[in-house]
Amino acid sequence: MSPRNGRPNVPVTIDGQDVKAFEGESILELARRVGVPIPTLCHLEGLSIHGGCRLCLVDTGDHKLKPACATEVTAELDVTTTNAEIREHRRRIVELLFAEGNHICAFCVSSGSCELQDLATEHHVDHIHYELGYERHDVDASHPKYVLDRDRCVLCTRCVRVCDEVEGAHVWDVAMRGNEARIVAGMDIPWGESSACTWCGKCVVVCPTGALSFKGRATGEMRHDPELVAFLARARDEGEWIDRRAEA
């Protein structure tokens, strides 16, 4: 969220509350600013908007629900961030994520520091209504410091974006489509063979699940730190690392 100048002046109603939004502000930004919680997964402050996970769907009175992260406010917009239909949508999205991966908290390196786990609790997912895929996805442990476990990947693309937009190395991409979609390094080479990777670890700290972790960590030992990206982006945008004394 980049700093905004001036005062918010776009009148918006959010869950019955009359508030003022900034010009060009997304519904999600507005909601967070005024303290209305909207769950997210792919969204991460400091990175570009992806709009892929659909957890932040809200009702704007349109014929379909809209992703709050990728929808700009307009004057007189009336937003409902949660109702029975939206809750049901979100719960099913979380269930589908569980059904297509192999998310087993019991021995996961990120148990206790996992946004998917938190979302499941938040949305009362006590069982999965869909048939579990049990697809086996490869674990890429070729990197000396990190491990990519595709069994635990939810394809949020935070790693793709942070590597491209913040680190500038662009190691990661999404290959294939649909059920075949997977995170790949370079042109689908083992991560350890990627000459582009700078070993910075930003992808690992932003990963919402146990898909990316520090090598050698045991069950429950991984702690992610996604807020780091917002800090880096802000510092970069505001030139916090430029020595002002030299300019003066």
Binding site: F107, R136, D138, A141, K215, A218
Partner: peptide, 14 residues
Amino acid sequence: KGRPVAEMPGLTAR
């Protein structure tokens, strides 16, 4: 099979 060795204590404890 296919899982990292560091995970084995947590996994096999199950």
